[in-house]
Design a protein around this nucleic acid. Sequence first.
DNA 1: ATACAGCTTTACGTTTACGTAAACTTCCTT
DNA 2: AAGGAAGTTTACGTAAACGTAAAGCTGTAT
Lengths: 134, 134
Amino acid sequence: MNDKKTYSISELASEFDVTTRSIRFYEDQQLLAPARRGQTRVYSSQDRVRLKLILRGKRLGFSLAETRELFELWDETTTGSEKQLNLLLVKIAEKRAELEQQLKDIAMVQLELDSAEARCRETLNEIQQKQQTE
Amino acid sequence: MNDKKTYSISELASEFDVTTRSIRFYEDQQLLAPARRGQTRVYSSQDRVRLKLILRGKRLGFSLAETRELFELWDETTTGSEKQLNLLLVKIAEKRAELEQQLKDIAMVQLELDSAEARCRETLNEIQQKQQTE
DNA sequence: ATACAGCTTTACGTTTACGTAAACTTCCTT
DNA sequence: AAGGAAGTTTACGTAAACGTAAAGCTGTAT
């Protein structure tokens, strides 16, 4: 089955370089639901994967609400009714479109960085030419 | 030279589907600096480009502060000192790394969407099989 | 002349995503 | 037994990115 290893909150926090406060907040926002041993949170490897996904979403500028929505989509892939599932396919397509827009945006910004770097190097060259002739 | 056309704040707002409030806020945060005719803002085509860049940054999850930093980098490509310029190259490299991380993240999320879609279609098939045999 | 459409500033309100502090339990170590 | 180290809840604070009035100026169409 799945890795049966478990994690404490601070293990996950240091592994992913986030605060425990953040992890608890994600739980508060329904993005995580760790087990408890007494009142202590015990994270499974699935929980760990979810955390990884949350942080990945953040790097792409997803809000926590958006990421939670994605999780809900995923969860409903097995349980949903026919109508639900068709709606899901639509939402998945929407997310795809979003990602492709981001790919375009990244390509554009990369071009801008290329351009900035080129100008930067030109100016540096000019400066060094001057210093040679002085 | 550059397009000498100018734009009103509401023209830009409707073109890019943002509120005038947002545009003024970007100015407040030093991301835009339109000319004035009397007290009315007059946006040049360069201003328009900057706005486009701001929104592109937003789609990539950049904060306004980050985008402003990028603008400052760009502006300094002509004026900076040698030390400045070398520091700039470092910053540009950092941004590049960020973008490449985002590319990886997007690829991963795309795989997850593939997977979700597949599961979705499977479940739909099962449902339809059942309906056939009933 | 007035009305209104579009611009302006000022300023308080709101949401998101946490930070930070206080006060408490639990378990281990010295 | 006494004190940390790591966990917990509760709650107020904060930065970012605007939303949302309120109140006023400004050109122009009726």
